[in-house]
Nucleic acid binder design. Structure first.
Lengths: 229, 229
DNA sequence: CCAAAAGTGTTTATGATACACCCATGT
DNA sequence: ACATGGGTGTATCATAAACACTTTTGG
């Protein structure tokens, strides 16, 4: 017996809000739509969920197909189901957000899309469907969660400097942070490991490179420690 | 053109995790299923989303139909879409959680359900589908969010005493709180209004009744204030 | 008059904030 | 040598935590 035999079903899609930090601050990855509806408009990467795949798998598949990105940090955001959100009919969309290191994210536009490109969150073009609302929800989630979860590291390469990390937080929280206080606090958590390497090739004193100790984070988390910035 | 014309679609449901504080601590409202699958098992109230209703509307409708509850605090939790979560086939469920004042929640079992009743979260019976996992996710969300959002008030009648409020937090956070510190902190936020009334009929000094000032909360929130406990 | 919860301040400890200069490197 | 960001410590302030007794009411 089918769950609802003759019962009509909404279509189900996933959409991905991919964030990175660029020169213009926080940026989102958008694709230019090739087909109707909203052909020519910018939109979030996403598409229909297959019958035999989990939701997160669908999000990862669509992301790879449409942008070339794989192995990114990905988390479910919210499910958007307003009855009029798609002009073609009833379409419910499970939205995810992803965090990537812009410098190491090599993009490859799909045949379905005219283009793939980064756009400053502060100056988005007109978006298809309710995608502006979805980006706004993702942005709010990121701003809230970055303070109590180790999300900042997902926007950086595996080895990074404290100044790079501080910039991540300054961009997301949209406020200047004190360098000494920031460094003291983040190092005091004991989650950063000094790799012993230095970043050479910069026209000033070579900064130390750190990495985030995921194993230790999970350990401390179990022991009741909570990340806080 | 239909969004996916010949493309098969998962079925879409909503499920509600309704919390209240009872004598056994945190409790969840469950219905005893009348029909297969899982006939006789306890399950979350919920059901299929109609083509012309929003997701939250569907959750409220199912909640009223199956338990009689209306006008509750309701928030989207997470969407569960594991391919094997329903033995009948592919069913994706958008889960919501609700908070109600147990004393004022008058229940009415639907014809579809053999029974509706409260169950201690600490000692749940076996649940249908992946409902145990959904309850766990809702519980975690509640524990996390109650500290930075004014959710506690949703579990009390409009007029309440500070001791009642403290108990809410103690139950949800599962830790004892200092009475004097609790009262100082919660009153300092300026969100509670002394109604001037006393709760009579108790075998001890009559406590003052307060109410939560929602208008003022929204005001302060806009001004950058953030609830914290 | 007894039981039961209401109500009320102060001290101490901890964590947050503010703040300025010298150092190392590449050009 | 100069421009650029890297790296470091202390004093002050604000918030959190610990803690015990008197008051009021109903039975």
């Amino acid at each position: 017996m089918s769950p609802d035999h003759d019962h009509p079903r909404p279509a189900l899609t996933v959409d991905c809000v991919v964030f990175a930090i660029g020169d213009d601050g926080l940026e989102v990855l958008l694709i230019e739509r090739d087909h109707e509806p909203f052909a020519g408009s910018w939109a979030l990467p996403g598409g229909f969920v297959e019958m035999d795949e989990n939701l997160e798998s669908a999000a990862r598949r669509e992301l790879e197909e449409e942008t070339g990105l794989t192995d990114v940090f990905l988390e479910q955001l919210y499910t958007f189901g307003a009855t009029d959100r798609d002009p073609r009919g009833r379409v419910v969309s499970v939205a995810y957000y992803a965090l990537v290191d812009r410098a190491h994210a090599h993009l490859a536009a799909d045949s379905d899309a005219a283009a793939v490109d980064w756009h400053s969150v502060a100056a988005l073009p007109g978006l298809a469907f309710d995608h502006r609302e979805i980006v706004a929800a993702a942005h709010e989630r990121l701003r809230g969660k970055v303070r109590y979860a180790p999300l900042g590291f997902e926007l950086l390469p595996r080895h990074f400097t404290l100044t790079q990390l501080q910039r991540i937080y300054e961009v997301i929280l949209d406020s200047a942070l004190d360098k000494r206080n920031f460094r003291r606090k983040i190092l005091a958590m004991g989650l950063l490991v000094d790799t012993g390497k230095l970043q050479r090739g910069v026209a000033h004193r070579a900064p130390r490179l750190y990495r985030f100790d995921r194993r230790r984070y999970k350990q401390l988390e179990r022991d009741g420690f909570s990340f806080w910035l």
